Amino acid sequence: MKKYLSQSHSCTIFTLLITTLLFSCDTLRKTPERNTASRGAASRSAVARGRTTPARRPVTKAPARKPAPSRSASTTYNRPAGTANIPQVVQIARTYTGTPYRSGGNDKSGIDCSGLICQVYSEIGVKVPRISWQQSEFGQEVAKVEDIQPGDWLFFVPEAGKEGYVSHAGIVTDVRGRDEIIFIHASTSRGVREDNLFSTYFKGRFVKAMRPF
C-alpha cells in the first residue's frame, strides 16, 4: 500500500514538474520572439525613415505674366491729325539736337531713340507707344523707300544685312532727293543728331518705315 502511494505521489510530483517546465519553456520561447519582432519593426521603421527624403516645401510658381496688349489696345494711343502737324513735329524734334543719349531717358538731360519719338509727339498732345518695337507696328507701313515723307518713322536692326529685332528708330525731318532722306534720332555715341538714311551705316540696317498720321 505504501509503495503504491509512494509511486502515486511520485507521479504527481513528476507531472507537476513537467507542467512547470513546459510552461516555463513556452514562456521563455514566446517572450524573446515577441521582443525580437518588436525590435525588428522598430529597426525597419528607422531604416525607412532614413531612406525617405524629407518632404520639400511646395515651390511657389512665378506669377503669370500679364498678357501682351492686343492690337486693339492701341486705341489707348491717338494718331496725329493728318500731315498738318508735321512741321511742328520736325521743329520740336530739332530742339533736342545735341541732347546726350541715355537709355530710358525722356527729356533734354538725356534721351534714347524711342523716347525721342514719344516725347516729341507728347509735346503736341499726341500719345504714341514708348518702346521701339511697338512703335514699329504703330500706324501704316510705307511700302516703298521712294514714298517716305517727313514725319515718317524709320526703324533699324542691330546688324547690317541681317534679320533681327528693331533696335533703333528715328523721325524723318527732310527728303532732299532719292538718295538723301534725313532723319533725326538719338545716337548712342553722339546723342540726338540728324543723319542720312542712305549713309553706309544706316542703309544696311534699315528695315521699315511707318507713317503714324
Rank of each mutant, 00 (worst) to 15 (best):
L16F: 14
I92V: 08
G164T: 08
D147C: 02
E194F: 01
S6A: 14
S136L: 09
T97C: 08
T60M: 13
V47E: 12
G177W: 05
I181Y: 01
R49A: 12
L21D: 02
I181M: 04
R178I: 04
I171T: 00
G125A: 10
T20M: 14
Y165G: 06
S199G: 10
T36P: 00
L16R: 12
D26L: 15
G50D: 13
R29G: 07
R56V: 11
G139N: 06
T60L: 15
R130I: 04
R178G: 15
P129H: 05
T99D: 05
C25F: 12
S24H: 04
K127P: 02
A209S: 09
N35A: 14
Y201F: 08
Y101H: 05
T12L: 15
A169Q: 01
S24M: 11
V145I: 15
V47W: 08
R34W: 03
R65T: 11
R205F: 03
F23A: 14
R57A: 15
W133D: 11
R190P: 00
G40P: 00
P32H: 05
I117M: 07
T200D: 14
V172E: 00
K108G: 06
R102E: 08
P80W: 02
N35Q: 13
A37N: 12
D179P: 01
V59H: 06
S114M: 03
G115Q: 08
V166S: 00
A62M: 12
D107C: 06
Q135G: 06
E159L: 09
A68H: 03
K3D: 10
G125I: 10
V175S: 03
V142M: 03
T36V: 14
M210D: 05
V207L: 07
W153G: 06
R211K: 05
G82F: 08
S136Y: 05
A160R: 08
L28I: 09
Y101A: 01
R51I: 11
T188E: 06
S187E: 01
A46G: 02
F23I: 12
A160W: 01
A169T: 14
Q140R: 12
V89T: 04
R211G: 02
R56Q: 13
K127Y: 10
S167N: 09
P100S: 09
G161E: 07
Q135P: 08
C118L: 02
L116E: 03
P100I: 05
P87Y: 03
H9T: 12
N85A: 11
T12G: 08
Q91T: 09
R39Y: 09
D174N: 10
V89K: 00
S43Y: 11
A93I: 00
T12R: 11
V128E: 00
K208T: 04
P212T: 14
Q7G: 09
V120M: 07
G104P: 07
V157G: 03
T31H: 09
S187M: 01
T95F: 05
P63D: 07
